[in-house]
Amino acid sequence: MFEARLQQGALLKKVVEAIKDLIEDANFDCNNSGFSLQAMDSSHVSLVALSLRADGFEHYRCDRNVSMGMKLANLSKILKCAGNDDAITMKSEDNGDTITFMFESQNQERLSEFDLKLMDIDSEHLGIPEAEYDATVKLPSSEFQRIVKDLASIGDTVEISVTKDAVKFGTNGDIGSANVMCRQNKSVDKPEESTEIDITEPVALTFALRYLNSFAKATPLSSHVVLKLSKDLPIVVEYHIENVGRLSFFLAPKVEE
C-alpha cells in the first residue's frame, strides 16, 4: 500500500493550484524515494516536474511502485476542501482504483476523508538530462511574478538576457516596449530580497510570456525562484519547497523562423 502524511498540507494545495491550469491530467508516481509527477502541457511546449522526497513527509510508506492517474481539476476540487492548517494524509491500496485524502485539523477535532477515483492516463515520460547551465539566476519569486505579469501587458514574448551583473527582461508589442533589469544583490540583512547570478557564459533567449505567467502561479511555494538558461535549450524555472522537494517547469525557447 501507499500512505504518506504531510503535516503542512497547504504545500500540496499550493502545488496543485500551481499546475492545474497548465496540465489537465497526470500520473503521480510513488516509490520508496518519494512522490513525483512529470507531465507536458496540452500543446507540448512546456513540461512540469514535481518531486517530493519521502523524507519530506512525516510518515511515508510505499510497498511497491504505483502510478496514480488523476485529473488535476478534480484533485484541486478535493484539496480545496482541506483547511490551510490541516495535515493531509494520502492513502491507496495496491491495485486500488481510488486514492483517499484525509484532512486533520491542527487540534485534531475535525477529521475528513475524500476518495478520488483514479484514471488510466497514457503519458509520455521524457528524459531530462542533468545539464550544466550557462547562467543561473536566483531571484525573489514575487519579483519574477511581477515582471512576467507586467511585461505580458505589453508583449507576448520576453527576451531574458543574463550577464554577470544583471538579468534583463525585455518585450515589444503593438503599444510599445518594456525592459526590466534586476541587478545582482546578495543582500545579507534581507536574504528574502536577494538576487544572485552565476554565469559561465552570457546568454539571451526568448520565451512565451503566457507560459512564464502560468509557472509563476507557484510563487506561494517559495521565497525565491531559480532560472536556469543555456543557449538554444529550454529554460528551467524552479521553485524549491523547503525540506520537501521542488517543482520545476521547463519551457522551450522561441526560435526565429
Binding site: 507536458m40 507540448h44 511546449v45 512546456s46 513540461l47 509520455e124 515520460h125 521524457l126 528524459g127 531530462i128 538530462p129 514574448t157 526568448t206 512565451a208 535549450l233 529550454p234 521547463f250 519551457l251 522551450a252 525557447p253 522561441k254 526560435v255 526565429e256 523562423e257
Partner: peptide, 14 residues
C-alpha cells in the same frame, strides 16, 4: 516571425 518547438524535441522519450 518566431516559432515554438515542442519540449519533446529537447528531451527524448524515456
Amino acid at each position: 516571425g518566431s516559432g515554438q518547438r515542442s519540449i519533446a524535441a529537447f528531451f527524448g522519450s524515456k
